[in-house]
Amino acid sequence: MVRIPLYIAFLLMSLLANGQSPKKPIRIGIVGLVHSHVHGILNKAFRQKQTDVEIVGIAEPNRELAERFAKQYGYSMSLVYPTIAEMLDKTKPEAVTDFGRIIDHKKTVEACAPRGIHVMVEKPLATSFADAQQMGSLAKKHSVQLLTNYETTWYGSNHKAFALANSEKAIGDLRKIVVHDGHQGPKEINVNKEFLDWLTDPATNGAGALFDFGCYGANLSTWLLRNQRPLSVMAVTQQIKPDIYPKVDDEATIILTYPKTQTIIQASWNWPFSRKDMEVYGQTGYVFTVDGTRMRLRQKDDKAERSLEATSTDAPAADPFAYFASLLRGETKPDELTSLENNLIVMEILDAARQSAKTGKAVSLKQKL
């Protein structure tokens, strides 16, 4: 006879008494290990052993990379398959998270959507608007979630700023949004070789800093302006460090014009330090986000700005994987920042920005009737 530890017995009785049963973890497959953001889910699943997700398979053709991470996180190499198709067929995940090259996001959706498997990709959604549209059509056809993960989605400060600007109307109608994102450069901050190789290739990443960090500002601006599409997109890019990044831009500025608002996105691999912050100006005040929690606010009749502090509860979840699990269980509402609707507009903006930077001219977006 198997003896159940007393504390587990009490937990089970408590759950049953409240009409609850222990939640099963969401069965997750990982597609690709070449994006360093993969450390987040590997740490959660194998080190912290959190139970909202269970990694059932990993698709990664680079055996040496998979073995390196297996030693670091302690997972079995029996979880690793050389192709997406084999991993999906053998492990039957409910959802996948894609940590591969941006160009390969489309292949992941093509493999998963017809099987009814939900997909979360790392930002941005795709390398082109055309690919993003095809991915979106597949997701809708097969009724699966297609989400895009941004680090800034999980910043309580951004959600508090959104509430002040939209729900509370605390700073008046929005007039200007300025978003700063980036760091000293991927090579300068010592990203691993597998990540650096594709991140600095315009075919596999779409562009350099323009896509890598311009996507954050496009995502946040689209959200703050309630999924408005801009009237026009103007972008300027530079290669300040062509000796390090010969194929792609390392400096980018994007200007989005709306009927009554302007957004300036400053995306860079040349900041003196890492940053992800924004300034939101209304007719009667402004709110700045400094980092994930710290903020500054000045409203009408204020003689000086004041500091605010956001908390983790202002964000939709503690991390993207907890959110993904909760969404698939039907416990939480879809988040607008990760949504397909928002990120199709993001890709339209990035595609236009790349074209504008190449031609030196603003790109007008046709407005939908």
Rank of each mutant, 00 (worst) to 15 (best):
P242F: 09
I264K: 12
E60R: 01
L369E: 15
T222R: 00
P186L: 09
G116T: 00
K358L: 11
P246H: 04
A325G: 13
K107W: 01
N166L: 00
N166A: 04
Y75P: 00
E188Y: 06
A132S: 11
Y7M: 14
L369A: 15
G172F: 05
K107H: 07
P22M: 08
I84Q: 12
I8L: 15
R354S: 13
L65G: 02
Q355V: 09
C112A: 08
E336Q: 12
R329G: 01
I171S: 04
H159S: 01
S143G: 10
G330N: 12
N192F: 15
P320M: 04
T332M: 10
R306V: 11
Y75W: 04
F69L: 15
Q184G: 01
F324M: 10
A252K: 08
L42P: 00
W154I: 09
R298V: 03
C215H: 14
G29Y: 02
S339V: 11
K241C: 04
A139S: 07
M234G: 03
A325N: 08
Q238R: 14
A130P: 01
T253N: 12
P230Y: 02
D197T: 12
Y245S: 00
K49T: 11
V38T: 08
L15I: 09
I177K: 01
Q299Y: 10
A85M: 08
G100S: 12
F321Y: 15
H39V: 14
K368S: 15
Y323V: 01
E60C: 06
H118M: 02
T263K: 03
T108D: 00
A113C: 03
V346I: 03
L33P: 03
V31H: 00
N343A: 05
Y150E: 03
W223N: 02
I254M: 04
S128Y: 01
H183L: 09
T253S: 12
I4V: 15
E67H: 11
T332L: 10
